[in-house]
Design a protein around this nucleic acid. Structure first.
Lengths: 318, 318
DNA sequence: CTGAAAGCGCTAACAA
DNA sequence: TTGTTAGCGCTTTCAG
């Protein structure tokens, strides 16, 4: 009835009745039931967001971006966590789609067949984020981790390093880390080089882990002149280890990480890294979901952001 | 009809029809509509979670706990962000309640009157988290920041420090930081002391900020023998500054932060801190929401967790 | 064990 | 400008 019109600010209501309704609503403590509203209008102000984990600093930053991008749109994110498990992703996705959200933002391009089918059939905007190396379903916003790895390799070689070690996570389902490493290898290969030694770990990214691993790899391969880390946290741990041991960075050994965590500015010297554009990715993804109804875009957008190399102080000037 | 019974595993369906239904559902790519389901059954598998920000590391950790606690319950978190604004909290809350969630988890005990009224009238379990210093609406899970501050003051005094400086955020709506400071002041007052100098900043917690502030306060008050920081990030920045300048920590000057970020283990020496039990708070809050229907609890639970003092290496042994 | 029927609380179209 | 009327796609209850 009229009440509905008032509460939704749809025109054609006299100021008087409007007042009366608003007052009644307030005194009754009336809160509309969006479930019924959504059912009737076939519109839902929820956006499904699926990420692997809250533990990796990167995802909260993306969420912050999404949250900011959704700010004035009346859309709310619903977050699901997969723990890097494709099966769990499938479950969470099913759960979300059953709420008929306005759109879905999902990390990564790798999904089970069933998940992919659900996304394709959902008839809502889908934005796969973080990664552009592969085929997307609808829209894609991210960076090329492969090229990020390659560029880092090139920068390192340009600076004259030759005996290069890699330190990263063991996680087989972290496709982005895997692609970065592949790109890195490819970059080295062009100069006829391969990774001289590598060290893997499981578990969260942490300074202490980085220290440990660095100690291990340097004990085993003391002649390494560069260490490439799969993230800034372990990279910074490595940096601290080197400084502790009085190793000359970047002279004797160079270091680089990945992510561009602003968190860590303020270490004695600044770790070389590559910005993953986390926040921008979130904002852009949110905009695509929010904007789709307005713009008449049908096909998905592909937004490739450019990770900036931040040379810091741990790569020798070439 | 029968289909509904199959999909929800409610008994009384023959194996044969069951098979048929399941198969049909699969080939049609059928995804049930929870909106309709929720409307009909008056049950919603969503839990509203309201936090001030994703930017402060603390909240993603709480979310991780909530996410873990909700894991096997079939409940999904819906996250809303307030940016530390009470008005925005009110809006977000209204939005959430209109989805008739199973429960609401909300950070802090301070809300606008309207928000408080909504929570009280919602007739669903409400868990206010992070803080127990004040009156809760229903359940409360957190630590006493006041006592955390006081305990830190006591530990510092016990170690023999006397000229104590405080460095923290300016944010007037960060009630927990404010309470910590109040408790800290009270602890000092018992020994007839006051804070000798203080320095405030706005903006995210970051190492670099901590360095800067520490330099500033020490330039102004070179005779300080202890610095208490409102969080571990700026505290660690301060620590790095002191190490850089060759200041003897904890001999000449002691340092302490707050939060117990495991992230930062691995710094040259370990900052004294107090664990805020972030993850446990999330888990416990989730359990309360999830468990309420089972247990016949009516009144709210009050769960006060005990922040552990982690003395690290930056407080002189007393 | 299975089918039929009556809503859940709204919105959208139409009539008044 | 306002009131009336059908549903939205399920769950629930009650017969068969």
């Amino acid at each position: 009835m009229t009440v509905s019109r008032v509460l939704r600010n749809r025109g054609d209501v006299s100021a008087t009745t409007r007042e009366r309704v608003l007052e009644a609503a307030k005194t009754l403590g009336y809160v509309p039931n969006k479930i019924a509203g959504a059912l009737a209008s076939q519109r839902v102000n929820l956006v499904g967001v699926i990420i692997p984990s809250f533990g990796n600093l990167v995802f909260p930053e993306v969420l912050a971006g999404i949250s900011a991008g959704l700010e004035e749109t009346g859309l709310q994110p619903v977050v699901g966590v997969t723990d890097y498990s494709p099966e769990k992703e499938e479950t969470v996705l099913y759960e979300m789609l059953s709420w008929r959200p306005t759109g879905v933002i999902i990390a990564g391009l790798e999904h089970t067949d069933a998940a992919r089918a659900m996304l394709e059939n959902s008839a809502i905007p889908i934005v796969e984020i973080m990664d552009v190396d592969g085929a997307g379903i609808d829209s894609v916003v991210g960076i090329s981790h492969q090229r990020a790895g390659r560029h880092m390799a090139e920068a390192i070689l340009r600076a004259g390093y030759r005996k290069i070690g890699f330190l990263g996570t063991k996680m087989p389902d972290d496709h982005r880390a895997r692609k970065r490493l592949a790109g890195f290898r490819a970059g080295l290969a062009e100069a006829g080089l391969t990774i001289a030694d590598e060290e893997y770990y499981a578990g969260g990214s942490a300074l202490a882990k980085g220290r440990e691993m660095t100690e291990t790899i340097l004990a085993r391969s003391p002649d390494l002149d560069f260490l490439y880390y799969s993230n800034d946290m372990i990279g910074s741990g490595g940096l601290l280890h080197c400084l502790d041991k009085g190793i000359d960075v970047p002279g004797q050994i160079g270091l680089a990480g990945f992510n561009g965590l602003p968190l860590l500015d303020g270490l004695p010297i600044k770790l070389a890294t590559m910005d993953a554009c986390r926040r921008e990715i979130g904002i852009k993804a949110a905009e695509i979901i929010a904007g789709r109804p307005h713009s008449g875009v049908i096909g998905g957008e592909l937004v490739e952001l450019e990770p900036r190399l931040e040379p810091g102080d741990t790569i020798r000037k070439s």
